[in-house]
Design a binder for these strands. Structure first.
Lengths: 220, 220
DNA sequence: AGCGATTTGTACGTATGTATG
DNA sequence: CCATACATACGTACAAATCGC
């Protein structure tokens, strides 16, 4: 029951003209992405939410439905709704991700540093966007995912990403400070809904046995 | 009004235990993918469908909502619902493509054959899908793009593709009949709107200087 | 500019089906 | 068999964007 209070605390947003199901959805997203609710934890039932909060059953279902579609929540008849395992959640820092042997997703962050190999990335964006970013705590910028940051901090959703993959033999550049020479170079450009470029990013990846996953469904 | 008849004709499925919104959604998918309804064409309004057919407003909205999420339909308040423009509906031969130096897209087909290097691909699908495919003229299957074929011949639109890229050092397999050893291996899985897997495809790509393009916008 | 009519978007309340435990 | 909880479905109401008059 105190779960509902966690939602209540995150609701409002003064004079938000967002639809109720969006407000509710985002409150739950906040509770999950903040770490308040951890994977596997049981969420309030539809009925509980509808009775306790000023939302109808349909509104609750619409909010939950979006969370399911976006992979933050899993639901099962007769059992309940649960915070999805971290692996398919929105904190995916990348547009593409590495897969473990068992098909689970390996976490990678801008700074990364895996135990397996190092990836170097460069990030380019406009001043208007860079300014709010550099004001953020350094650890936040370096460990989180740019898409999520831009959405949360600047309300700027990325709706399209194009990426290129090169298997070129890039020279072992001292500039990149990599021990190994990159085997793959990925270049990604992110666009807003208006088609404007928001940022451009390069990844230098050494030889490795992992599989990179590209999914045509954009997830936050 | 005769648009609704086009839906009615595709409804049924005897004793289909699928939810009503799925039946309706698939009927509309059929009308679009068969070419009966062309891009830009106006769809029946929610009210029309709800009044004419045995569907409530909510059910119609749920069906339309899925079509919008999957890019087959665009809707606008006060204006109506429309078949999405062909531009977002694909004719690109691949899920990903090679770029020329000037940024233009190099055509690649299942059999390929670039002047630059050879790509070998394997295609896996169910019998139900394979049968109509093998009846097609061989040159058609080998030069065209599976997504387009499936859409045109079987009325089966692909709405989502996941791909993995491996830079692994695959052995120069005699089985693949490649002169050069593959440097990149791409594996792609294609899904219908219902989330069912339609086909699985592997690509073996030798070392080259080209850039592979992945675009998060699914285009037909 | 205003004023309806149309059409999608949101929201409510209710009812019933179905898988889980 | 029963209680729980999600899934589907219905009918209704109103808000908001669009278009034509």
């Amino acid at each position: 029951m105190e779960m509902i209070e966690a939602i209540e605390a995150r609701l409002v947003e003064p004079s938000s003209d967002a639809p109720k199901y969006v407000v509710l959805r985002d409150a739950i997203v906040g509770a999950i992405s903040s770490g308040d609710w951890i994977p596997g934890m049981r969420l309030p039932t539809e009925a509980e939410l509808a009775q306790t909060l000023p939302y109808s059953l349909g509104t609750v279902q619409k909010a939950y439905g979006e969370l399911v579609r976006n992979g933050l929540v899993v639901r099962s008849r007769g059992r309940g709704s649960f915070v999805a395992s971290t692996q398919r959640q929105m904190a995916d820092p990348w547009h593409c991700r590495f897969l473990a042997d068992d098909g689970t997703i390996l976490p990678i962050y801008p700074r990364l540093i895996g135990r397996e190999f190092d990836i170097v990335s460069r990030f380019y964006t406009s001043n208007a966007i860079a300014k709010p970013l550099v004001r953020l705590p350094r650890d936040k910028v370096e460990t989180a995912n740019f898409k999520a940051i831009l959405l949360q901090e600047l309300g700027m959703p990325i709706v399209r990403v194009t990426q290129t993959v090169e298997s070129a033999n890039a020279p072992a550049s001292r500039e990149l400070q990599m021990k190994e020479r990159p085997r793959l170079v990925i270049k990604a450009t992110a666009y807003t809904i208006g088609g404007d470029t928001v940022y451009f990013q390069e990844f230098y990846i050494p030889a490795n046995q992992r599989r990179l996953l590209f999914d045509s469904e954009l997830k936050y």
